[in-house]
Each structure stands twice: as C-alpha cells, then as structure tokens.
Design a protein around this nucleic acid. Structure first.
Lengths: 246, 246
DNA sequence: CTCTACTGTTTATGTCATACACACAATGGT
DNA sequence: ACCATTGTGTGTATGACATAAACAGTAGAG
C-alpha cells in the first residue's frame, strides 16, 4: 500500500509542476528554426484584453488565436494549455507592485495605499479574483505580498503576525469587490436588485431590512472601502500598541 | 438612441432574471402529467456531493444525470441550465444559518463563532468560494448575512456600519481559505511549495523571506484563523468604543 | 549544403451544453 | 369513460471547445 490511486495524484502533481514551470521557469530561446510570429507576452496580453472587454467566458484558445489571425493550435507552441495561459494572465495583470516607500507617514498610510491599489486592480479586472482563488501564486502576486509585508515590517511584529496582518487587509479588500462594482458597468444594478429582494422578504431578514433603512448598501458606500479599511487598520494598530506599549 | 446594443444587455438581464426566479421563485407543483422521478433538491444535492468528492470540474450535466441513471436531457425538466444548477448548489450548500443567540457574551464571541462556522463551510466545500463570487446571492446566503448583522446589532452601530463590519469579518475569513487547506487534502502541499519558491528567490522577496524565517506560513498558522480574527474584531471594538465612549 | 530543431497548419477526437421533436403518462373537464 | 392538455423522460442533432497527432515549410548549426 502507499501507491494506490496513482492516476489522480500524478495528474494533479503534473498539472501543478507545469504551472510552476510556466510561472517561474526561464525559457532559453532556441536559435534554430523560424522566428516565432507571436510571443507568450503578447498572447497573455491579448487574452487579458479579451477578458477585460468581453469577460472570461469569451477567452477561448480559438478566440485568442484569431486575435492574431493565427490558428488555434499555434498557441500550443507558446503555452502548454489553457490553464497555464490563465495562470499567466492572473500573474501578469497585476503588473509590478507599487513603491510604497515613497509614501510618508509609516506603515498605516502605506498599507492603506496598497489596499486601494489592490482594489483598483480587482475592479478593473473582475475576472481576476475568481480565477486567482484556485491557482498557484505567481512571482508578481508574491511581489505584491512582499511589498505589503515590507511596508508593515517597521512595526516590529513577528513574521507570522506581519503576514497575518497583511492577509487581513487583503481579505477585506477582496470582500468589498462584489459590493463595489465599477460604475461604468451597467450591471442591471445587482445591488439595487439585492436590496429589493431583501426588503421584499423583510420578515425573513429583519436585521438587514432595518440596516438598509438605516443606510446600509447606500450608493455612497458602494465605491468606498474607507470605512472598513480604517477599522481593519485600527485592529492592527491596537495589536501593535499592545505589543510595545511604551 | 438608448436602445443600442440590445443583444448583450438583454441576454445578461435574462440570465439574471432566470437566476432570481430559480433562487427565489416558489414553484407550484403541476397536477397533470406523470410523477417526476427526481426533484430539484435531489439533483442539487447530488451535484454538491459530486463537487465535494471529485471537484467542480467533474460536475457536468451528463455526470449528474447519470448519478440517477437518467439521461442528460432529463435534468432540463427540473433546472433551466447548468448555470442555474450551480446557483442552487451555492445557495443550498450553506444550509441554515446557526443560532448565534445561544452563544453568551455579546456580539464579539457571536461574530467569532460565525466566522469559524463560515470557515468550516469554505473548507468543506472548496468549490464554493470561486463559484459564489460571480453569482447572485441566494436566500440562504442572505440569511447568513442576516444572522451576523443581527448578532452585531446590539452594538448600536448604524446600518451602514453594521454591514461594513460584518463584511470585514467575512472578508477576512475568505482571505484565509487558501492558506487553511484542510489537512485531509494531500494537496501536494502547495504551502510548502510556495515557501520553497519564495526562499529560492530570496533576493527578490527579502521581507517575505525573513518573515518566513521568523515563523510565517508555519503549519500552526495554517488551520488557525484566530490571530487575524481577533485583530479584526479589535478593529470593530475600537470603533464601537469610540462611538460610545462612556 | 544539409540536417535538425522549430514554426504554423490541417485534421481528428472526445467532451460538453443545449435545442428540438418524439413517445408515453396522468389528470381534469366533459 | 373519454380525450385534450400538460408533463415527463428520451433520442438525435448541433455547435463550441480543448487538445492530440501528423505534416509541411524554414532557418540557423555543423
């Protein structure tokens, strides 16, 4: 025993290995053969543009290839498969992390800026979050994490606490995305619909109904992460103060 | 003008309307015709079981139908399409919300319990979060929100603040999911792999590397949401205290 | 100059969601 | 008791998709 069920496990491990290779490997360019007509970067960028404008559902190998006037199968000369292409999209769309050290005032305004920039990215690319959730973190994603941890490092927290705190901020931003749908998206106003569904079922949702009557889900909150962000930073602040009370 | 691009918009609106109908509509059972051999509930449950054991990728109409020994197309007598089936899976898997009023000690332990229960659900059903992200909230999901808002209502915050605070907690839990992979899943240990990738590139990630050396990403943190949860609750506490300082 | 590694293409396969039309069943109004 | 209506499960068909396999041309290395 110990070698049961090899098919499933090996397959998963191979998939993971391929993702790691694509995300972290350094391809040495071949010298033989014809010059490539595309490049991984241009393919990934085309796929990102497509996802941004027409949604992730429109991103098929055929569609991306046709964006270059090439055949579907030509893409497989650059990328092992669709899943790895999405891996690259996810990591690439983040771009390089911001330079938080340029922001004065210590960790708090820096982390706040980081949160706002992250939110901007989530809103600009609505497909990012659901895809990223089930995927390996790529080099750029880790770079963003790095720069947040570095910003908070001056607080003197332990490594575990640093990371935990950054994840709190990141988690908060993530949770606000569904409620902060970008205004240009005339999304049949899901928010309004949600409010109507709740108030139509007021007996079932008394606390929510009265919260709504009291201003919850108001448009002012929609595109504003400030309230919760300051609460989250307060929590971290409180902890830092309790560790070094003098 | 004003009626341009009708195709896209109408389609989206119809899709949304169908989701709302499936999630919130009360089907009145027909009296004519043969007795149904399945039921929406049993179909949804079978799909959930499938997703839990073999992953969301295994959930196809054919596979779900074959679970009952029926043909693919028979499912369409019960559910308009696959997307709506997933809508139902997402809302159904949550089950009924807990009774937080049974927990003594005020809003803080209640909200903490809510967070832990939410985390349990996310870990038991890894497919839930990515699917839920892009979908309409269903009645049960709103019930969970309701019960958290109700738990915090005693704090005297405004409706907007109540909702914002609950979303902070929810967001934190969501963000911890990727790092708290359930132990029974021998996931080729993505966490270990991640650590290795970071430390292998230490010059690029100095702050993370030293945080790891200092204990970050340690197994003890993996299945533990307590540190961050208490920080988040501290932040809310601080705000509540500042509103009613006496 | 020719071998070889590489590029883009053609063709084929299997899976999937889903439209459509059929055969049969139960029921309610007659 | 009949039969039109309304459902149910099925068989067949279509079109999108990912991806495997084999092939034809191309350009640098020896």
């Amino acid at each position: 025993m110990g070698a049961e069920m090899p098919g499933k496990k090996d397959e998963a491990a191979e998939t993971l290995a391929r993702s790691v290779e694509v995300l972290w490997g350094h391809p040495d360019r071949p010298t033989r053969g014809p010059k490539p007509g595309m490049s991984v970067d241009r393919i990934v960028q085309a796929a990102i543009d497509l996802a941004d404008t027409e949604g992730m559902a429109a991103v098929s190998m055929q569609r991306v290839a046709s964006e270059f006037g090439f055949t579907t199968m030509s893409l497989y000369r650059y990328v092992p498969g669709k899943s790895e292409l999405i891996d690259l999209m996810v990591d690439s769309v983040l771009g390089d992390p911001p330079d938080l050290t340029a922001i004065p005032g210590g960790w708090r305004p820096r982390l706040a800026a980081w949160a706002r920039l992250t939110m901007d990215c989530f809103l600009r690319h609505p497909w990012f979050l659901p895809e990223a959730l089930q995927r390996m973190m790529g080099p750029r994603q880790i770079s963003w994490l790095e720069c947040a941890v570095a910003a908070l490092a001056e607080s003197g927290l332990t490594g575990e606490e640093l990371l935990g705190s950054v994840l709190i901020v990141n988690g908060y931003v993530r949770s606000m995305v569904p409620f902060a749908t970008a205004p240009p998206t005339p999304d049949q106003d899901r928010g309004t619909l949600l409010i109507r569904l709740i108030t139509d079922n007021a007996p079932r949702y008394p606390a929510l109904t009265s919260a709504i009557a009291d201003g919850a889900f108001s448009p002012s909150q929609h595109d504003d992460i400030e309230f919760g962000l300051q609460r989250v930073l307060d929590g971290i602040q409180t902890y830092i103060d309790s560790r070094a009370p003098n």
